[in-house]
Design a protein around this nucleic acid. Structure first.
Lengths: 338, 338
DNA sequence: TTTGGCACTCCCGGTCCGGGAGTGCCAGTC
DNA sequence: GACTGGCACTCCCGGACCGGGAGTGCCAAA
């Protein structure tokens, strides 16, 4: 495929993204100084269509890019368009005001939605990539505890623990000391192994209680791989032209399904710096017309993912730049707490 | 206004809610055994229209209720339609599986959305109606602490605290003991008064640190009256017929604005058991076509509000019953932790 | 006060039509 | 052989038009 054909493809992608209308040969020839006539562009377009990069909504209409066309654009043609200095400053200022992890996540997801004009999704630091910083036990009633776990990523989780017997204040203190001794500093993923013999380390009267505690820890904090996610910018789905095929119903539903969101953000194992998944590459029927741009973030290693989600017809250079910049800066912030 | 006219109004509201189409005199006369002819119904309708309870979308169309009509229906005509036994069981089962407060709130909001087929909103127990159960200090770096507060309503809040000087492990312990001594069991609203002289209670070296801590406590936990809210069921906005005048854009935007949501849920002072705000009664332009049904919840006293939000044309008896039932059961659950 | 009858209004969906944008192809030019 | 101008063709889109149907308001009679 010669260079001019690539230029024609770029022109079609850029114009289509900008105008939201199929772009014709004349427009390409005029607006992008290719130095050839519309007829020539038509020939190139016929080739690009044959090769599957563009398509016609109907005979005698202009062309729009296919998923394959966008893919080629992203891989070879799009020059990432860095944030403006003003934007960069705004990002820094807004994020540095965050008051705790919740606030970091909330601000991040809003920022992404605002910068990209798309729907933004941010995953909280994944528990199974975190270590225990501190465990706290607070008694609610004589037979009911609250277990509070604080991780090295700043995440705080709470769980109710039903006790088989009444506990004294001292019992609680002893248990707290013990679980902290065992788990502090350890990756949460190791907890099941480390904690297996917790019941053997306490005096006999506390044995049942200790194992109840151990069970809650393992069952609800480790085994259950639920991830927390924050979403913002749903209103951007209604932008004119974001008219999702069918309707936006399935998209809105998916945004409340933690499982689907996690699938979109990318399976946890991915450590790629930045991923762009276009249309079918999401392997989800409802997202066949949707592009997802994600990045991992974390202090040093990746502890979670964030991204935005929009129509395949999106401003790739701008979106990619925004996601990358925000992910980097959030990583820096998390770094400060180590 | 005589009884039959009220019956006609009821018929119009019920049929319109069910069919989503303006209802004509013939339909009313036939489907609701009023024992009079369509012509008579027409006369009553003319009266009801004159009085402002119903209106015509255009000449020669059927009638639809006005906000005033719905209001009358809710106040005098709607017999609340209790949940079925199966629904009640489902509510109990689903909520009793909750694992912590976050989970209670998440499950509640989903349940409401599912039961009512509307958008649901649940406010977390308000901090300024809670008391301090426990305060925990965890050091992140030598000059950075994390303050974790646990309230009697089960809410857990975290805040980063920047320290003016490095702290030893013992310093942290002392501060923890001190703040707990001062605040444990106290309503958070009293914190500013109670904590004012915190700096005077520590040895001189810790004075600056103590006041930094006090400042964070007061500024971010008390003064800042941000409320946390959870939302679910946004996809219900797209139900056929929920076609919000204009578009659903402003609604989606409002759902991400904590301020607007709180205004909809009702100013914090309201202790009414259940509130129905129809159309203009919300005093928000974007919600002129929207009804909000809210209820307070809490163990004993009200600590937060929950509700659902839908088109003025909604199933009032069913929605009211669902919100009331869920609010009651959530209150029971919170009761268990006291 | 209620009722049947009747003329009238207005929406809604379907059809028809002309303009416009864009294409594919072809013959001619460099 | 690659490019270009010309031309016939296709198809969408918006507006105009129209007939059926549902519903009303009013009136005279019971």
């Amino acid at each position: 495929m010669d260079d001019r054909k690539l230029e024609v493809l770029r022109a079609i992608v850029e114009d289509y993204v900008a105008t939201e209308e199929p772009v014709g040969s004349k427009a390409v020839a005029q607006r992008h100084a290719l130095g050839v006539s519309a007829a020539t562009v038509r020939n190139d377009m016929a080739y690009l269509e044959e090769a599957g990069y563009i398509q016609q909504p109907h005979t005698s209409a202009g062309r729009i890019p296919t998923a394959k066309g966008y893919r080629l654009f992203v891989d070879r043609l799009g020059k990432i368009k860095p944030l403006s200095a003003a934007e960069r400053r705004a990002v820094h200022r807004f994020l540095s005001e965050a008051i705790d992890l919740d606030d970091v996540v909330t601000r991040t997801v809003r920022l992404l939605a605002q910068l990209t004009h798309q729907v933004a999704v941010v995953q909280y630091p994944s528990l199974n990539r975190s270590s225990v910083r501190h465990l706290e036990l607070v008694s609610l009633t004589p037979t009911r505890l609250m277990l509070v776990m604080i991780t090295d990523t700043g995440r705080v989780e709470q769980r109710y623990v039903e006790m088989p017997a009444e506990l004294s204040e001292d019992d609680v203190l002893e248990l707290r000391r013990l679980v902290n001794e065992q788990l502090q500093g350890r990756p949460l993923a190791d907890a099941p192994r480390v904690i297996a013999d917790l019941a053997d380390l306490v005096r006999p009267e506390l044995r049942d209680t200790a194992s109840a505690l151990a069970r809650v820890l393992v069952e609800t904090l480790v085994a259950r791989t639920e991830e927390r996610v924050a979403v913002a910018g749903a209103a951007n789905l209604t932008r004119p032209g974001n008219f999702f095929a069918g309707s936006m119903r399935p998209i809105l539903e998916a945004l409340e399904e933690e499982v689907v969101l996690m699938q979109l953000l990318g399976r946890a194992d991915s450590n790629a710096l930045l991923t762009v998944r276009i249309g079918d590459e999401n392997h989800l029927d409802d997202f066949r017309e949707t592009t997802v741009v994600t990045a991992g973030y974390g202090p040093g290693s990746v502890v979670g993912h964030m991204g935005v989600l929009g129509p395949t017809r999106m401003d790739y250079p701008g979106t990619i730049a925004a996601v990358r910049a925000v992910a980097r800066y959030v990583s820096e912030i998390l770094e400060q707490n180590r």
